[in-house]
Deep mutational scan, measured.
Amino acid sequence: KELVSALYDYQEKSPREVTMKKGDILTLLNSTNKDWWKVEVNGRQGFVPAAYVKKL
């Protein structure tokens, strides 16, 4: 599985998104959309802005 690192804090703005803190390591589930990537963090799945994470 592919991992990404959070470059910035992000506070979810809808139920489809997830909150992350800078430095968090997230499991990348889907990166086909260039703007929003689906990740899993702390057992929750949702979307984060692609520009806020980088692949490890």
Results as ranks from 00 to 15, higher is better:
P15L: 10
E2I: 15
K13W: 04
K22E: 08
L26K: 00
V18W: 05
T19P: 07
N30Q: 10
V39N: 00
S14F: 07
T32Q: 12
D35E: 12
V18L: 15
Q11G: 08
R16D: 13
N30W: 08
S14D: 11
F47A: 02
E2K: 10
S14T: 12
E12H: 09
N33I: 06
D9T: 06
V41A: 12
R44Q: 08
L56W: 11
I25T: 09
D24T: 06
K13R: 14
G46R: 02
Y8S: 09
Y52I: 07
I25P: 03
A50I: 03
K38W: 15
L7A: 06
V39K: 00
K21W: 09
E2N: 12
D9N: 09
L26N: 00
I25Y: 06
L26T: 01
A51H: 13
W36C: 09
W36E: 04
V39H: 00
F47N: 04
E12V: 06
Y52F: 13
N30D: 15
Q11P: 07
T19Y: 04
E40D: 09
K54F: 11
G46A: 03
N42Y: 08
I25W: 05
V41D: 04
G46C: 04
D9L: 02
K1W: 13
T27F: 13
L29E: 03
Q11K: 13
K54P: 02
E40T: 06
P15F: 10
M20C: 07
V39D: 00
M20H: 01
R44W: 05
L28A: 01
G43S: 06
Y52W: 08
V53H: 01
W37F: 08
S5I: 15
K13I: 08
D24E: 11
S5W: 15
D9S: 09
V53K: 00
S31G: 11
W36T: 02
L56F: 11
L56A: 07
K1A: 13
A50K: 06
K55V: 13
V48I: 09
L7N: 05
Y8V: 12
T19F: 04
R44T: 08
T27Y: 13
K55H: 11
Q45P: 06
V41T: 11
M20P: 00
E17F: 06
D35L: 14
N42Q: 09
A51I: 11
L7W: 05
E12N: 08
